[in-house]
Design a binder for these strands. Structure first.
Lengths: 114, 114
DNA sequence: TTATTATTAACCCCTATGGGTGAATATTAA
DNA sequence: TTAATATTCACCCATAGGGGTTAATAATAA
């Protein structure tokens, strides 16, 4: 399981459209900071900050080659978050299914005049 | 698909352990604000604020009965977030699989002296 | 050596969050 | 009517996020 703290960082990091777009871009392969920044109307600095948040959440890894920093994806935290989410969804859909079943049972019962 | 903005709100709302605990509790059925607050060492007010954030993300719904407010789960946003995450995970695991395959192919090639 | 390039660091601004306290509101009970 | 309960509202505080600009650093190129 993911440590709660890890989940905090992962979900917080994913809760921003710029950062999600950066991850999308990185899913096609590693890229430098400048390349990652180019599609956005914001400053290179802002993108650099977003990257730091992604790094802190270990969603991306940095490889330095001279003055260039290459970023790439790290799959584990997303796997953990996805697993957690799927689990929660099951738990609470199950609960809702039980409620539905109960309601249906009552409907049947009342239609039988019970 | 979830609107990007919706995803922002959902993920941000989930990125807090208190709020995740509240959702866990609600997966066992609806509860009042005071009941939700009782397990936490923080003030009722703070919990009330957390609930507002969950409501804004439409992860919980509120039903007023007199002076009591009953909170219950809303499954849709979590479903959407889980779907998004599963999709991302697939996309980028696929990419990593391709890389692995390439590396393996190179290994085979080099072991054949090519 | 001197530019130029790639990136971060150090600041400023504003807003939101997570915590608190104390007062206001609404509803139920005495 | 008055008192008690359930919840929120209106503030306070501190920290972090997302944006900016202008240095500072590091490395390559001229």
């Amino acid at each position: 399981m993911a440590k709660p703290q890890t989940l905090d960082l992962t979900l917080a990091a994913l809760a921003d459209p710029t950062r999600r777009a950066i991850l999308q871009r990185l899913s096609q392969g590693e890229a430098r900071v400048t390349e990652l920044a180019s599609p956005f109307p914001i400053s290179l600095n802002s993108v650099s900050k977003h990257i730091r948040i992604l790094e802190r959440a270990r969603l991306v890894r940095r490889r330095r080659a001279g003055r260039e920093h290459f970023l790439s994806l790290e799959q584990k935290p997303l796997d953990e978050a996805a697993t957690w989410m799927a689990g929660q969804r099951n738990i609470w859909n199950a609960r809702l299914d039980v409620l539905e079943a109960l309601l249906e049972a009552e409907d049947v019962a009342s239609s039988l005049g019970t």
